[in-house]
Design a protein around this nucleic acid. Structure first.
Lengths: 139, 139
DNA sequence: CTCGACCCTGGTGTGCACACCATGTCAAGT
DNA sequence: ACTTGACATGGTGTGCACACCAGGGTCGAG
C-alpha cells in the first residue's frame, strides 16, 4: 500500500517531499493546516521531517486530489480516519469516491465524443474542399 | 455538426436555452459578456432569442467547458473564430485541445489506478480478518 | 563572520467561474 | 387595474485551492 516512490530511509525536508510528490511546499503546508495531512515530526531545528509513513499519507492525498476530490471531502475523509473509522468505513468512503470519479469520467467522455465528431466534421470539410480544388486544377 | 438536441423551429428564450443545454441562465449571459458566445438576436421586447445556430454555438461552448477548457482559452478560440480563422486553423485548435484532454484523462487514470489499488488493499485486509475470525469461531 | 540556502509562522492576494441581488420593464392573465 | 412571471442590466459576493509575501531563525561553506 505504500507507494514505492515515497520510500525513504531518512526523513526528508518539506522541499524534498514536495518534489517527490509533484506538488509545492505551499500545498503541503496548506494540507497540514487544513487538517488533511497530519503534522509530521520536527527535527531539533524545528523543521518538518517527512518519513515514509508521512510521505505515504501525503501521497494518498495527492491521489485523492488527482482524482478530483475536493478539499472539503478530503477533510472529512481525514477526520473520519482520525476519529477511528474502521477499515470497512474507509473502504466505503473510497468506493463512493471511486464511483463519482467514474461518473465524471463518463461525463467528460460524452463531451469528448462531441468534440471528436466536430473534429471529424472539419476534416471532411477540408478534405472535400481540397478534392474539389484538385478537380478544378485538373480541368 | 448541429447537435440534434439543439434544433428548434422557433427561437427560444434564454431560460429554455439554458434548460436545453444543461446550464444556467447566468452562465449563458456570462459567456456572452465574456465574448465566448455571440450576442443573439433580440425580440421586439428586448429579450434574447436563441435560434438553432445560436444554440449550436452555445452547445459548442458547453462541450469545450465539459472537456475542461477554461474560459480564457475559450475566449481565444472564439476571437480567432471571429477574426476569420479558416477551417484548418479551427481544426488545429480543436485538435490541440483534444490532445490536452487525453493527457489529463491519462493523468486522472494514473491516480485512479492508485485509488483502485488502495481499495483492493482494504478489501483484502477485511477479507483476511473475517477469515481469521471464522477460523477462531470454528476453533 | 558574512553569505546564501534552506526552513519557520502568519497574513494577504489571486484567478476562476459563475451565483446572487436590486431594480426596472413588459405582456398576459383574472 | 392589478398581480404575476419571465426577462433586462449592472453590480457585488462566493468558494476554492492554493501562491506569494514579510520578517525572522539556523546552518554550513568560503
Amino acid at each position: 500500500m505504500l507507494l514505492p516512490e515515497v520510500r525513504v530511509d531518512d526523513p526528508v525536508t518539506i522541499s524534498v517531499a514536495a518534489e517527490m510528490l509533484g506538488i509545492t511546499v505551499d500545498t503541503i503546508r496548506y494540507y497540514e493546516k487544513e487538517g488533511i495531512a497530519p503534522a509530521p515530526e520536527r527535527g531539533s531545528d524545528g523543521w518538518r521531517r517527512y518519513d515514509t509513513s508521512a510521505l505515504s499519507w501525503l501521497a494518498g492525498t495527492v491521489m485523492l486530489r488527482g482524482t478530483g476530490m475536493n478539499v472539503q471531502e478530503m477533510r472529512e475523509y481525514a477526520s473520519a480516519y482520525r476519529a477511528g473509522a474502521d477499515d470497512a468505513e474507509r473502504l466505503a468512503l473510497l468506493e463512493r469516491h471511486h464511483a463519482t470519479v467514474l461518473e465524471r469520467q463518463a461525463e467528460v467522455q460524452r463531451h469528448l465524443g462531441a468534440l471528436e465528431r466536430k473534429i471529424d466534421a472539419y476534416r471532411q470539410t477540408i478534405a472535400a474542399r481540397s478534392a474539389s480544388e484538385s478537380t478544378r486544377s485538373a480541368a
